[in-house]
Design a protein around this nucleic acid. Sequence first.
DNA 1: ATATAGATTTAGACTAACCTAAAAAATAAT
DNA 2: ATTATTTTTTAGGTTAGTCTAAATCTATAT
Lengths: 219, 219
Amino acid sequence: METITAEDYIKRIYSIERHSNFASTSSIAKALEVSDASANDMMKRLSEQGYVKYIPRKGVQLTKKGKIIALKIVRRHRLWEMFLVKFLGYSWDEIHNEAERLEHVTSESLEARIDKALNFPTVDPHGDPIPTANGELIETEYQLLNDCEKGSAGIISRVSDKSPEVLQYLKNIGLGLQTKLKIVDKISFDGSIIVKANKQIIPLSPKLAQCIFIQPVTA
Amino acid sequence: METITAEDYIKRIYSIERHSNFASTSSIAKALEVSDASANDMMKRLSEQGYVKYIPRKGVQLTKKGKIIALKIVRRHRLWEMFLVKFLGYSWDEIHNEAERLEHVTSESLEARIDKALNFPTVDPHGDPIPTANGELIETEYQLLNDCEKGSAGIISRVSDKSPEVLQYLKNIGLGLQTKLKIVDKISFDGSIIVKANKQIIPLSPKLAQCIFIQPVTA
DNA sequence: ATATAGATTTAGACTAACCTAAAAAATAAT
DNA sequence: ATTATTTTTTAGGTTAGTCTAAATCTATAT
Ligand SMILES: [Mn+2]
Ligand SMILES: [Mn+2]
Ligand SMILES: [Mn+2]
Ligand SMILES: [Mn+2]
């Protein structure tokens, strides 16, 4: 049985691996805000317990066993996020930390009931895909808003859930999942993107646009 | 900040105190299924942290600080139980263990939202009172079914939540909260209680009847 | 090729929980 | 009033998780 702490490590390794193949001690430590020594300790423990393959001085890779846990926790996290929004009226900027704790105290039965109550959702409130009960995850690759061309149109399909501030700001200016927008201009000297959405002209800083992922539409 | 373990100790001390004034080391140990030595350790820790007054060789008593935590956790436990029943279709015999974990990962905000979603319930699915947000608990003293007289009538108002088996059995024979019943007979040689409920004659063992609390009605 | 910087690991220590086995104190029984 | 039993506490040990400081290894730069 995994402890709450171990589950969070495993989940983080999973997300680091998606970019880097190997998850280094220091990247894990930084992501979880613990010392390198602590992360190193945990890698030894997780390796002994078969959750990761630990290659000293290189980093770790999740084993099949580790990946199963990671996807389980990600699934529960995203189901909870959806549940908090749909059943308790939370907005998308308030749910991450709640889900970060709830994900660790969720039985198979509770997971299944939440899934059913939500009518088996495929994405969470940030547009991130929810792994299926048997651990399959279909990642759709959307286009970064920054990379969209002037004149093109698209639908907001995923938003980075890293920063509550960004999410709150987007909510305030009326941008959310499924919002349709058109890129009316791209300012070359500072990288700003000017979009039209909800019949409004909205300027977005490059840092903000970096948080928004688009499904292009031809319209 | 309290750990999950400490919260469970505090909650248990609270419930023991309701009968015994002092909670002895061994009573706590037995209730939480840990060794006496472990419980003794924890009493020292809780006492240092001001949650209990520890009188060596006698036992502990919750301080005001401890009582506040106890009631907070009890509140969250019972709100979650109600929520699981009302929003996720759980039955009253399946909810205790889920709530036992969820109670520890519930923020003020989540607690408030659940409370609101349930329209501010005053009792949980077992008829136990839910402490208010500011820590008030109104205990209604019901009559034990065993103590009801032959010929008297009443409404099931509280059921012991100690055993899921009992709860499941009661569900199966059609007895639940608010069920109206009449004591048609009391068998002296084994202590059985024969009741009439839902137009059926139902015999209840003394052990079972001990789990049922009645609000008498004159009818 | 060697020095320096950066990342990783080890060493040693701490806290919260837990355990078993033994000691000490309080109760109950003779 | 002793003795026996039960309860409580202490002593000593374990595991998970954390830390800082020191050591070691790797990669980069001159
Ligand atoms: Mn988490
Ligand atoms: Mn999310
Ligand atoms: Mn609990
Ligand atoms: Mn209950």
